[in-house]
Amino acid sequence: MKRELLKFLAFSVFVLLLPLLFEGGYLMNVLVFVGINTMLAIALNLLLGYAGQISLGHAGFFGLGAYLSGVLTATYGWNPWQAMPVAAIVVGCMAYLIGFPVLKLKGHYLAMATLGLGIIIYIVFNETIDLTGGPSGLSGIPNLEAGGVVFDSDVKNYYLIWGITLAVILFAINLANSRVGRALRAVHDSEVAAQVVGVNARLLKVQIFALSAVISSLAGSLYAHTMTFISPASFGFNFSVELLTMVVIGGLGSVYGSFLGAALLTLLPEFLRAAQDYDIIIYGGLLVVMVMFMPGGLVRGVPDLFRRIFKSRGGAGHA
């Protein structure tokens, strides 16, 4: 537990000092998105990596958070700080209710049901034009403001988003190493054995689904208030798959893995500007390669690889 805390502190210092390297350049803006995507990847990882339940509709919850926040503030003039929790609560309740029938399903069927859910949400964003502006998007969403400071620059947003991201990371780490986190992992490994020792697997799965939706919604609200403009295209099936890729690449069941996956997938397109249109090939390829050769993700796969290289060297030296 102490080691966890030290790791977290080291990571926080890293996050705090990172902007000094870039002096507020363009990359700062990208790093804001790394933060938002980290939150989303952690949300999905709680569900997929810990509880073992897949979702291909998380972009929908992300979008619901963004649109609820966006519409409440831009159209109805709410204060963003009020809109965010209201959005999160609404999305959480929705996920909780829909969670009961959805999480009765397993494996491929769960994947298809969540996918369907995500697509329905996406269609609603596109079709309720009066409310959301439809495919052309919703603009004029206000920035967040605290104590007279308006979060309207990349640097300010960086510290705002990463402050919240760090809180989400700590939240997830605490949860993972607790009674509830253990019960989740138990359900993942053997649902029947978990039930036999008294874990209400069904309720727990629904709870974590709702929590995951709440975190996604929060990330969505923050996205809306930093971008000030949103459109349905950001919340489609492709983004759900992108989130899945982040979690799988980083490592199922690893909080820092989610950060790695999110960072990699957010930064990669920036470094591959020339190949921009072809980023989907890279996602697809990464998914296939990771599942085939590094099913534990980067956090486990890379140390393993090093160990193997060192071992084989050691062996050679011996001979």
């Binding site: 073992g52 890729t245 697809g284």
Partner: peptide
């Protein structure tokens, strides 16, 4: 099942 879902999704994106 989860790995199969992921790999067929990955494959589909690749194709």
């Amino acid at each position: 099942p989860i790995n199969l879902v992921i790999i067929t999704i990955g494959g589909s994106i690749l194709i």
